[in-house]
């Protein structure tokens, strides 16, 4: 081990071959999946335009720092929490140029948030101030999600109040004569939230029925 080239080439061979085996090989084997046809519709299907825009907002705000978009089957309580009905598999993400799998759950998983929270109005108010929406609901104790009020415009009411204006009450109300309306970014983000649902089955995706004959 006295010579530099020996160390350099040895390290190169080790690092390059583990990369080839554990990163490049899986990508070549399984990283060129195609959409699967379920009842004549290709799944996963493309996102609507506004939701596509919402993906960019999701990335820009770093939502992935607290929220995952992957459901586990054989570990954790993901299914019991109604976060999904089956294991997430690679094919679920093929349309995503930038995937948001995430690695930390300070908040809940969002793979199926479009199912759990189908009401756009709820999302608009929740992004404005999560505590405003959750306070008073059953079992509410705390929420450490940041407020995204910077995605909303506070403006003076000119003429008729906008029909998009948030209904703010009590301590959250703004001064008389003003209203808070969501910006395009907020609406795009909500459209993205509503589009997040895995409502199809894939042949390779394990679900509880397939591995537990008792069910």
């Amino acid at each position: 081990m006295n010579r530099g080239p020996f160390i350099f080439i040895g390290a190169f061979i080790l690092i390059a071959s583990t990369w080839a085996l554990l990163v490049q090989l899986p990508v070549m084997q399984g990283g060129n999946l195609e959409a699967y046809e379920v009842d004549g519709v290709l799944q996963p299907d493309a996102l609507p335009g506004l939701a596509q825009k919402g993906r960019e907002v999701y990335q820009e705000l770093g939502c992935v720092q607290c929220h995952t978009q992957q459901v586990r089957l054989t570990s954790g309580s993901d299914l019991a929490r109604n976060w999904g009905s089956r294991q997430s598999v690679a094919r679920d993400y093929i349309g995503e140029e930038v995937a948001f799998l995430g690695s930390v759950r300070i908040g809940p998983d969002l793979s199926n948030v479009g199912y759990r929270r189908p009401d756009p109005d709820w999302h608009l108010r929740h992004f404005y101030n999560p505590r405003m929406v959750l306070e008073g609901t059953r079992n509410y104790s705390f929420s450490n999600m940041p407020s995204f009020s910077f995605l909303y415009d506070k403006r003076e009411i000119v003429g008729e109040p906008s029909d998009k204006a948030l209904k703010l009450e009590g301590e959250y109300a703004v001064e008389e004569g003003y209203e808070v309306v969501p910006s395009l970014k907020a609406e795009a983000l909500v459209a993205y939230m509503l589009s997040l649902k895995v409502d199809y089955d894939l042949p390779e995706a394990p679900d509880p029925v397939k591995i537990d004959p008792a069910r």
């Binding site: 990163v23 899986p26 990508v27 060129n32 997430s88 993400y93 093929i94 930038v98 995937a99």
Partner: peptide
């Protein structure tokens, strides 16, 4: 190269990322 130039499909991006 894998994430931003050639592009890797969906969840495999995170394989590269965690590596």
């Amino acid at each position: 190269a894998m994430l931003f130039y050639t592009g890797v499909q969906g969840s495999f991006q995170y394989l590269v990322g965690s590596w």
